[in-house]
Amino acid sequence: MEALSSPSLPASRPSARRRRRHILPGFHLTLGFTLFYLTALVLLPLLALVLKTIVPTTDYPTFFKLVGHVYDVATDVRSLDSYRLSFGISFIAALINGIFGFIAAWALTRYAFPGKKIIDALVDLPFAMPTSVAGLALTQIFSTHGGYIGQTLFNWFGWRIDYTAWGILIALTFIGFPFVVRTVQPVVADLAVEVEEAAACLGANRWQTFWRVIVPAVRPALLTGVMLAFGRGVGEYGSIVFISGNMPYLTEITPHLIIMKLEEFDYVGAAGLGVVMLLMSLLIVGTVNLVQYFASRRRMA
């Protein structure tokens, strides 16, 4: 066997491996087009964004000589307020979705009820529904002037949802919901009922089983879903701009500030804010992958 599988001549080795790797046709054509399209449409434009932030100036210390104006824009009060809104409210919305998304995923996998398949399909609606339609509808519901719910809330309690951070929270909750449900659902479906039975046999009540058995098993998926909802919320634009009113310092999210910078022809400032958002997305995706990595390693162990 040894003699058969090992090549007789060392020189034939690379070509043999090469042939085996390329049994099917079209490798160069398809990979070439893939790389070309990816580079032209995504990588080069993103590189252009990063390079745009490098504007050498002399009146800044050391490193900031390179990116002086960008540093100014990125740490401006208006920008800082917009980060606080985009990141803070996305985070709260992601936590809300963590709770309700888990409940929905649990109910959709464990309970039987009429209309289950329709509800299950409806969960994907925020994925399929254009963000501007969602924004328009939510505004019409929560507007203080003639909104289906907003008018009543304002008249009875004096609560305002549109033109406040509450509006942003509602839009982001709408957007993020399916991320949690769709990440948690398969994990709940795969939970071994036997483990819960074992817990019950050992004398645990349902509540203890939930906290000691179910939650630890679902936690990585739940964390992933929450992070994905958070990541999506940070970049969200369409569903928010209708309801939030985009008031600088108060209800202006970072993507809207980027568009404002572009309209003022401050391309470098816009690029700087874009890079800040890009880095944050990178951080979020990195965290998601870390969570996945540790979860899979624990499954292996």
């Binding site: 964004l49 940070v234 970049g235 634009y237 993507p255 980027i258 690029a271 890009l278 997305s281």
Partner: peptide, 18 residues
């Protein structure tokens, strides 16, 4: 995972007047 606004921004930075 990047904001859709960035998807527009990159092309504005390439093809815009500045």
């Amino acid at each position: 995972w990047v904001s859709p606004v960035i998807g527009g921004l990159v092309f504005a930075l390439i093809f815009g007047r500045q």
